[in-house]
Computed example of a mutant assay.
Amino acid sequence: MKLIQDVHKLIKLTGERAKLDAKANGTYIVYKTEKGQIVKEYANGQVELI
């Protein structure tokens, strides 16, 4: 069970790091939501469906 928790933590940290990098470089991140939608999220918080 500890391994699964560690993997979830790493995934979360990776996403947070991607958001910081996108903000620093004026870009966006792309990810899949829980509902299965692919979205672009800009540094200003704007979310755009692809």
Rank of each mutant, 00 (worst) to 15 (best):
M1Y: 12
M1C: 12
M1L: 14
K2D: 13
K2T: 13
L3D: 13
L3E: 14
I4P: 04
I4H: 10
Q5P: 04
D6Q: 11
V7H: 11
V7P: 06
V7S: 10
H8W: 13
H8L: 15
I11T: 14
I11P: 10
K12N: 14
K12Q: 13
L13M: 12
L13G: 08
L13C: 12
T14Y: 12
G15L: 11
R17H: 08
R17T: 10
R17W: 06
L20S: 10
D21G: 07
A22I: 00
K23M: 05
K23N: 04
A24N: 05
N25W: 05
N25P: 05
N25D: 11
N25I: 06
T27V: 07
T27N: 07
T27W: 08
Y28P: 08
Y28D: 09
I29H: 01
I29C: 02
V30K: 14
V30S: 10
V30L: 11
K32L: 13
K32Q: 13
K32H: 14
E34I: 14
E34N: 15
K35A: 14
K35Q: 13
K35N: 15
G36K: 04
G36W: 04
G36H: 03
Q37H: 11
Q37W: 13
Q37F: 10
I38H: 09
I38Q: 04
V39D: 00
V39G: 00
V39A: 00
K40C: 06
K40M: 06
Y42R: 00
A43I: 03
A43K: 02
A43Y: 03
A43E: 05
N44Q: 02
N44E: 01
G45K: 02
G45W: 01
Q46G: 02
Q46K: 08
L49H: 03
L49A: 05
L49T: 05
L49R: 03
L49F: 04
I50C: 04
I50F: 05
